Computed example of a mutant assay.
Amino acid sequence: MDMKKRVTLELRNRSPAEIVELVVDNSRSADGEVEGLTDEFTELQFLSMVNVALTSLAKLPSLPKLRKLELSNNNLSGSLETLCEKCPNLTYLNLSGNKIKELSKVEPLQNLKSLQSLDLFNCEITTLEDYRESVFELLPQITYLDGFDQEDNEAPDSEAEEEDEDGAGLAGDYDDEEDEEEDEDGSEGGEVLSQSGCL
């Protein structure tokens, strides 16, 4: 399905201004450009365009409230300055699996002052010597690169962040559940269950 049709389908008879999240993964952009999106998507906070054959972001509309942008598995090699102009409030950007080869191509992201997490996994740039150090130096505002911070601590996923804010971490909840399982089934049964869950 082409991207324009997919965007129309995802609207489900709502106006673009009502849409907060939009996923058009695996649709096809005819000429490598963003299609079907307009400046009317004023409330859009999450946009996913994974594997849609994008080669350019030139036709990306202005999305002032956009916070998360998924662009993995496309053919982008640069033109990232467009993101700074059109999506100035991005906090999360996934560019993994694109054709980004040089540090100079990610340099425009310096202007995304709110950017906290950047993913360049499976891009040629990751083969550069001192890749991680160089990107963190170039983009001091980011906390996470390819899912890890500068000390190699893994980024918490968004669910974990929400739970942490409530004061209950995921690990604590998981241990409680496992203990209950063992109490009910006897310790051996509980262990077998948890092992099979891991496979």
Rank of each mutant, 00 (worst) to 15 (best):
I100A: 01
S72I: 04
T126P: 07
E102V: 10
P61L: 08
N74M: 05
L37W: 01
S48P: 02
T42W: 08
V106L: 03
R67P: 08
I125A: 08
L103K: 04
C84Y: 08
S79I: 09
S56I: 00
N73T: 12
L115N: 02
V50R: 15
N73W: 15
S72M: 11
L69W: 00
F41K: 02
S48N: 08
K113F: 11
S62T: 13
L93H: 04
V106D: 01
L109I: 01
L112S: 03
L103H: 04
L44E: 07
E43L: 09
V106G: 03
L115A: 04
N111S: 14
N73F: 15
V106C: 02
K86S: 04
E102T: 13
L69S: 00
G36A: 05
L80N: 01
A53W: 13
K86H: 08
K105N: 11
K59E: 12
L128I: 06
I125S: 08
N51H: 14
D130A: 14
E70H: 14
E102C: 11
K65P: 09
L90H: 00
E70D: 09
N111H: 14
V34I: 13
D130G: 13
K113H: 14
L120H: 07
P108F: 01
E81T: 11
L115K: 02
A58M: 10
L120D: 05
E85H: 14
L57I: 07
L120V: 08
E43M: 10
S104H: 11
L54Y: 00
F41M: 04
T42I: 15
N94G: 11
N51L: 07
K105R: 12
L112E: 01
L69G: 01
E102H: 15
S56Y: 03
L90A: 01
N94W: 03
N111C: 14
E124A: 15
N74I: 06
A53C: 12
I125D: 05
N89I: 04
K59S: 15
L37P: 05
S104D: 12
L80M: 01
T82E: 09
L54P: 00
N75K: 14
L47P: 07
L83V: 06
L60E: 04
N111G: 14
E35C: 03
V34G: 07
N73H: 15
L83Q: 01
K86C: 07
R67H: 15
L71S: 00
T42H: 09
P64C: 03
T91N: 11
C123Y: 03
D39T: 09
E70T: 07
Q45P: 06
